[in-house]
Nucleic acid binder design. Structure first.
Lengths: 220, 220, 220, 220
DNA sequence: AATGAATGAGTTTTCATTCAT
DNA sequence: AATGAATGAAAACTCATTCAT
């Protein structure tokens, strides 16, 4: 568990803290525990991050930075709607796999009130939601625009579902979570969401409606 | 914020604690804060619940109790698969609306390591997942059974998505979350999931199997 | 040095803290040192006084309380101006002798910026200065009223001079500071001040002017 | 507040520290705060002054140096007793006005126990008191020589009174402390003390002794 | 001459719990 | 059944100083 492979103290603090926060939650972790595990003097935490919340700020900022980068990159690739959603899904899943602690912490602490951090979160989330909404809205025109605020979070929640519940699911089942699993995970979530949203949208791919269920009469 | 309307100390402690845990996370709340807001002597917490974790246990147990009750009740109603999913979705949303703090705490703290509580959570979750899986599997035969462990949590995550992110979304958007919103929420989530899963299942609705990505039968 | 004779924790904390503050200054004393010397658990300080500054607040309030009580009592005795000044001087000196630590702390910390306490000090000092000014102005009409703000503090400073410098004077001389010394101290300070102020006032003693600048027209 | 006009680091440290010590007290100021405000690297403090107490030593030494210089200079001017006291008073007040922080720190910290510094203070104070006593005793023969140890500090306390209480008085009154005020301050304190001491001394002015409480000769 | 990263002992305050009443 | 004083451990953070550069 002790973390001394990385030689830079600030990085060791960040990754160690992220791991502990991910497992126990931000408030349950003390800086002493972090500094011990990171093999760093306890003062270094205030020195580098200005305090415990400073670490959390760094973690959350990093997560949103990665997220937005993915969203922007894909937006530049001019993909078909289906492909965009699929790549977005897989991109996020890859992100979570490559930085599981960072992502879990950012997501888990998102809805939790930490006064010092609320502003940061709201600011980052606003920008983030706009990017994501654009990705979805670009390809799938939803009848009722008020559904955007439901579909967006639902999409994200699906993607994150395994990572949020993973640790406890791991204990409740005997499934192995290897690369093959995540391949399947990407596909399943993409498919679930694409089928789901196509059923309720006027798809705009190629400018003509192509939704699978498009024969379907719209909901009254 | 102070809570003195309920006259029974144990109830005041539970509801006050649930509210605080829901907002700040379990570890960030002190028993002094709980006892102050609940207008209860601080010793009463140890007295009634055997300590702070005792309150959390009670909250989590209550949540799972309600959840299972819904699952069991619906299972007894012999509903069509579509209707089952819809009712299950709406039942859970109603539950969350009627006991928002209890539910948020149980869900938020679910993936967090609290040694004293992990066993309880694993035990309750196992039972819970079986009930839910049965509900889904009953109507939609998924090609690959390993997808169960993905679809189940994804379904739940979608349902809970708003409640997890709600508080922060509230700050990042100006949508009003009233009864009308939740009506829309139930429908949207149900539809999203039903479309999604039908697209990938050999639906047994109407007794005939249909493949993944089939041109899905339209909703009536 | 250890203080266990008084049985009430709050009192032990207060007197021990006053002693330490008096010698080392407020900021130089840690609550650990206080709690050790007072034979009290360290948490009791926050428990009883709400923190270290709480002790200081209590000390300062006690000092001003005693001070004002003396001023008010003497004001009620309808004394001759000379007698009033003399009794006021001796009253304060007795106060300082009976509660040397309390008084030293209050006086020494008075001009020091402690944000949390500034308001308290200003409020208490305002009231205090009015009481004292009345005592002086009652008997000695000063030509220039703007001198009040000089004479008042000068008077107090003279009275406190020994107690402020005492500890260091003790080290720099071999005088013994016994009851006889303080008797002399009272008389000397009173005389010094009375002579001083009479020389610059239109004295109203006995209705006949006796001041140095007695060419001044007498009061009725 | 930041101090970068003076270009020499050691000077910037000293003046910045003096200002902070004067306002908050020695112990309440950290070297980080000093180095930040002085725009100096934190290590420079240990480098130039050998530590935080080194700064205080420098400040106290500077104050006593100035004080003694005044006392010695005036002693060489062969002044009349009255004039000596007046010039001494005004000299000190000018000193305090020109170096308010240095003087306040030296005076405020004087009675406070700082082991490392006590010896320095006692040594400087002894010399200082002798010089001052000589100034007073030279012109006014006090009946009881034991009164010297009372009158000396009382005299100093009067002079310093405004500077000790000034900052808090500023908050408690609306008087403006400009040059005119300090002119008045010099005169008032001199007069108060001269009248005071003449009343109790066998004045040697003009070579003839006069008793206590004599109808004092008026000023010039 | 000057820097700033790093240290470890120090600070105050808050924690959950217990116990005598 | 209920209180609140008391505890000791642990919390986050700041301290003055040192050292390699």
């Amino acid at each position: 568990m002790a973390n001394k492979t990385k030689t830079v103290p600030a990085e060791r603090i960040l990754s160690t803290a992220a791991n502990l926060f991910a497992r126990k939650g931000f408030s349950a972790v003390g800086i002493r525990e972090i500094s011990d595990k990171a093999k760093v003097n306890i003062s270094m935490i205030s020195y580098y991050f200005g305090g415990k919340t400073g670490i959390l700020k760094a973690i959350i900022s990093e997560y949103f930075g990665h997220f937005d980068e993915i969203a922007i990159r894909l937006a530049g690739e001019k993909l078909q709607p289906d492909e965009l959603i699929r790549k977005f899904t897989c991109g996020l899943i890859e992100l979570i796999r490559s930085k599981p602690d960072i992502c879990r912490v950012a997501i888990i602490e998102l809805p939790i009130e930490i006064p010092e951090i609320t502003n940061l979160k709201v600011r980052l989330l606003k920008n983030n939601m706009q990017l994501m909404s654009k990705s979805i809205a670009q390809g799938f025109r939803i009848d009722d625009p008020r559904r955007h605020l439901i579909i967006g979070p639902a999409f994200l929640s699906m993607i994150f579902s395994h990572f949020l519940l993973g640790s406890i699911i791991k204990k409740a089942s005997k499934e192995k979570f290897d690369s093959e699993f995540f391949q399947r995970y990407c596909e399943t979530i993409s498919e679930l969401f694409l089928n789901g949203i196509k059923g309720m949208s006027k798809s705009v791919t190629n400018g003509k409606s192509t939704g699978i269920n498009q024969k379907a009469p719209k909901r009254k």
